[in-house]
Amino acid sequence: MFISLEFQQQNTNEKELSRVTCWLLGAIITALSIALTIALLVTDKAVPGLADLAAKNLDISGVENPVTAVLLNFRSYDTLLEIAVLLIVAVAILPTQSSTTTQFLSVDDKIIISPVLVGLLKWLVPLAILVGGYLLWTGAYSPGGAFQAGAVVAGAGVALSLAGRHDFLWQTTKARVALNLGLLVFLLVAAANAIVTGTSLQYPVEHAGWLILVVEIAATLSIAAILLLLFVRLKKIAERSEQEINQ
């Protein structure tokens, strides 16, 4: 009740618009959408886009799944910047105090949780990590890849965090390495490529497969760490359980 009241103030300093304005805006946006739809309907689609070109070069891309080939070879620069985007939010949300402990994952055995939950976690967490590994591996051949794998592995962390006994210490060196590893490895591989082939991000054809796998493993780790960080920090601030979050 109190919270919902607070949330009512939680806007960007904008007041509710009057009904007339709403209808007017609705009408304008509907008209624009219809115009856009008509523009879509009267124009032909480019056939077949880049499908042929991608298929033709798939053999020398180092992977068999065309989407993975686009993400990590043809247009790997986009993926590199995409990991940078994730890193931005991670840095923005990261607690700034440095810590004295070195342990990333801490367990508080004094918190009593249901034995059923303990049993479930024992199964669920290793299973999620296993599935993540599988998704990462299979990304080379069929749908899957670093982001999907990272999301599933982060899910294991989310389950631990929700159960209540575990806490993650993001100020530790381990955590910071995990957050940055994906971008760092990607950059190093890009630089190594530039030295070997003369062009940044160009994989030597015979080594493309394993190099891409290395990049993907590092990316998976970082994506998992960053997604988990986002969840844990948002959960903490929503529960007001951490005083220093206010900075």
Binding site: L50, A51, V67, V70, L71, I88, V89, A92, F147
Partner: peptide
């Protein structure tokens, strides 16, 4: 035949959307 390039763009777009949403929530 399916063009993989838009699929890759969507995957990138999803990641960016996750990042933007998380930042706004924060």
């Amino acid at each position: 035949i399916t063009d993989p390039v838009p699929h890759a763009m969507v995957l990138t777009g999803i990641v960016v959307a996750v990042a933007g949403t998380a930042q706004c929530l924060w």
